[in-house]
């Protein structure tokens, strides 16, 4: 039941992410989550499939190294280290995260698994990671932390994707990973522009366009 352990760890990282003040640390935790996801298919005993192996390697590479690298570089460029004054306090964030996990469990309860599927934790974990990502996106003010939120949200989806990993065509899988990478890359570029233009990456300031 190695994969259950990995999933439990993933869910724990969610809480860590929500509670952390430091940008550096949240990037680290997100990267760690990515690595956990990379190992997940291996823990499910899918060694035999070559494309699964390739995928695991690519995941670890992209989520564990490449993207954190991009984010750290962006962090250095924009000189942001701490998330100050989030819209929602950390305590409340934790409670909401817990609530999200609860909702995920209820939802997962309503979605019957394939008969004989032993991966009961996958669905709630995926959904709760998704909600955590959303929580970060909604409650944080720094553009960079929002990107981390997006990354976490993607991780949640990826986690669910593991249920299908056996059958997923490689073309689609690589496409998904590539898109994620390019997406984060572009976001990094935009963050850099934002700092240059706004002297800050506080998204509170970016509310000039409104009705």
């Amino acid at each position: 039941m190695l994969h259950d352990l990995l999933i439990a760890l993933t869910m724990l990282t969610n809480f860590t992410l929500v509670a952390t003040h430091r940008v550096q640390k949240s990037i680290q935790v997100a990267a760690f989550q990515g690595v956990l996801l990379g190992f997940l298919p291996l823990s499910m005993g899918l060694w035999r499939h070559t494309h699964v192996l390739l995928l695991a390697a690519a995941t670890i590479l992209v989520k564990g190294w490449l993207i954190p690298f991009l984010l750290r570089r962006a962090m250095r460029q924009v000189q942001i280290h701490r998330e100050v004054n989030p819209y929602i306090s950390y305590t409340l964030s934790l409670m909401l995260c817990a609530l999200g996990t609860g909702i995920s469990l209820v939802l997962a309860h309503n979605l019957p698994l394939k008969p004989g599927d032993a991966h009961g934790l996958f669905v709630p974990a995926a959904l709760s990671t998704l909600f955590t990502g959303f929580l970060l996106l909604v409650s944080r003010r720094k553009a960079l932390t929002q990107v981390v939120g997006y990354l976490v949200l993607e991780n949640g989806i990826y986690l669910f994707g593991m249920l299908l990993v056996e059958q997923m065509p490689l073309l689609v899988e690589t496409g998904i990973l590539l898109d994620l990478f390019v997406g984060i890359f572009v976001m990094g570029i935009v963050i850099n522009h934002i700092r240059a233009a706004f002297d800050s990456t506080d998204t509170l300031r970016m509310a000039e366009l409104k009705d």
């Binding site: 553009a143 997406g183 572009v186 976001m187 935009v190 522009h193 934002i194 233009a197 706004f198 998204t203 970016m206 509310a207 000039e208 366009l209």
Partner: peptide, 8 residues
Amino acid sequence: LEATWKYL
């Protein structure tokens, strides 16, 4: 830029 960020 703001628009791009939101769009993205």
